[in-house]
Amino acid sequence: MKINRAGSGPSSWAPAEQFTGTVRRDPLIGSEAPGRVNAGLVTFEPGARTAWHTHPAGQILIVTAGRGWVQSEGQPRQEVAPGDSIWFPAGERHWHGATATTAMTHIAVTEYVDGSAVTWEDHVSDGDYAAG
């Protein structure tokens, strides 16, 4: 058994190449081999969001605070709130983040496949973000 104590890993700011706005990431726990799962707490300030991206094994999000938006390519944007959980299937192009006026925090659970958990793509434009 392994216990990761709250706050034992340093917070980090998400890179501008993959995110728009102010986004803080806090590590929660990662499995050890042969496991391939990682979980982190991600906080988006109002207007902040990920770039478009995919995950080779899909992704689970669990909203813990605030209000956010999630969108898969070709589908309408959806609002999410604390207690909501989201599943993005493997390879589904999507983005997620805070609403324009409210911060949002979620737990992100991802699985590594061949050493990679995510493929980053282009940024969500301000126009596309606002239009949903």
Rank of each mutant, 00 (worst) to 15 (best):
V23T: 12
V23G: 04
R25T: 13
R25P: 04
D26M: 09
P27W: 12
G30L: 02
G30E: 12
A33P: 15
P34M: 09
G35C: 02
V37P: 01
V37E: 03
V37R: 11
V37N: 09
N38V: 15
A39E: 05
A39C: 10
G40V: 12
G40D: 10
L41Q: 12
L41G: 06
L41N: 10
V42R: 02
T43W: 01
F44I: 05
E45Q: 13
E45G: 01
E45K: 09
P46W: 05
G47Y: 04
G47A: 08
G47I: 05
A48Y: 02
R49D: 00
T50S: 14
A51T: 06
W52M: 01
W52V: 00
T54C: 07
T54E: 01
H55Q: 05
H55G: 01
H55P: 04
H55S: 00
P56L: 06
P56H: 07
P56Y: 05
A57M: 14
A57P: 06
A57Y: 08
A57W: 08
G58L: 08
G58Y: 07
Q59M: 05
L61P: 02
L61D: 03
I62P: 00
I62C: 08
V63K: 00
V63Y: 00
V63W: 00
T64C: 02
A65K: 02
G66A: 03
R67Q: 11
R67I: 06
G68W: 05
G68V: 06
W69S: 06
W69C: 08
V70E: 04
S72Y: 09
E73L: 14
E73N: 09
G74V: 06
G74I: 07
Q75M: 13
Q75V: 07
Q75R: 14
R77L: 02
R77H: 02
Q78A: 12
Q78C: 09
Q78G: 05
A81Q: 12
A81Y: 09
G83S: 07
G83T: 06
G83F: 04
G83H: 03
S85I: 03
W87H: 15
W87L: 15
W87Q: 13
F88N: 13
G91D: 11
E92M: 15
R93I: 10
R93N: 10
R93S: 08
A98E: 08
A98N: 09
A98D: 06
T99A: 06
A100W: 07
A103T: 11
M104Y: 10
M104V: 11
M104N: 07
T105R: 07
I107Y: 11
I107F: 13
V109D: 09
V109Q: 07
V109K: 11
V109N: 08
V109S: 09
E111S: 15
E111V: 13
Y112T: 14
V113N: 09
D114L: 03
D114H: 10
G115W: 07
G115R: 03
S116Q: 15
A117H: 15
A117F: 15
A117E: 15
A117C: 15
V118Q: 13
V118C: 14
W120D: 06
W120E: 06
E121C: 11
H123D: 12
H123K: 11
